[in-house]
Nucleic acid binder design. Sequence first.
DNA 1: ACTATATTGTAAATTGCCTTACAGTAAATG
DNA 2: CATTTACTGTAAGGCAATTTACAATATAGT
Lengths: 157, 157
Amino acid sequence: MATKFENDADEKAAAFLTDQDRLVFLLEELTRRLRRTFDTSVEQFGLTRTQWRALAYLYRTPGMTQTELAGQLELERASIGQAIDRLEHLGLVERRSAKNDRRVWQVHLQPAAIDLLPKMRVEADQIYARLLEGIKGEDLEAFKSTLATMQHNLGDA
Amino acid sequence: MATKFENDADEKAAAFLTDQDRLVFLLEELTRRLRRTFDTSVEQFGLTRTQWRALAYLYRTPGMTQTELAGQLELERASIGQAIDRLEHLGLVERRSAKNDRRVWQVHLQPAAIDLLPKMRVEADQIYARLLEGIKGEDLEAFKSTLATMQHNLGDA
DNA sequence: ACTATATTGTAAATTGCCTTACAGTAAATG
DNA sequence: CATTTACTGTAAGGCAATTTACAATATAGT
């Protein structure tokens, strides 16, 4: 056989991917590993990935509406409604109706979620320590800057 | 009211997040936007995200086993089996039994998938052009390097 | 005001992925 | 060899997220 490939299709395929594809794959794989690592860490608290991600965004921005959460978490509005249902039953969040718009719920953390916070803080910091090991401060700043540019470039045009 | 927050829980929550949290959120949001942009682009080909991701990995590495694909795509082996079922029925991939291990299927692209390839190439390149606009070559190289370090750091310890 | 259009969240049915358990095969151990 | 242990893929049932359709409310256009 003339090549290491078994047929034409395989040969064309292997030549197909570019450096840019590989960059995107690498990004995907890194965030996948991050999500998995966090999943393992929050299992002990009885939270699913969607639940802790929702809490994390609510830690950052209290009072988000369900539609805003859906956009941030890459879920549909209907799915977020269900997730908030569960978090509400767990006593971790509370829906409050907005004053100026009676269609929307603003989602706020409950004290029980705040109690969970320091424990999640410890887990997260341990993960970050691993993630950033051996990376110089200036390199990390440059990384963030490039990342921000990429995100801006992809803004909803 | 003394602060802009409505209660103590909100105030504590807003102070909770660190720069490192924000870095991870930014990473998640970028890859989310990337996935959504690709999703929109491949809708015309009738492929779901899982299907085109599987094809992309098979473009890179023909003959991957289902277990290998599961690891790369962050899916379970059972799920990959179903996805490959669908891709096989679409005539895009083919299962071949491995010579040395009768337990495994090696998954290979079919000519139909190769026909799809140039069209996906065009879509992907357009997205990359947007993504990388205004980023200098050396900055991109540094970015990749830091990314690789992070991925290595998070390797399955 | 009145109407048309858009937005927010919900309900029901569907789809996709996961979990668990298992059969078939391979590799390791005695 | 024989037996045990590990690995690969499949089947069945359950759960989470989506799709579609809708009610309630808000906004824009006339």
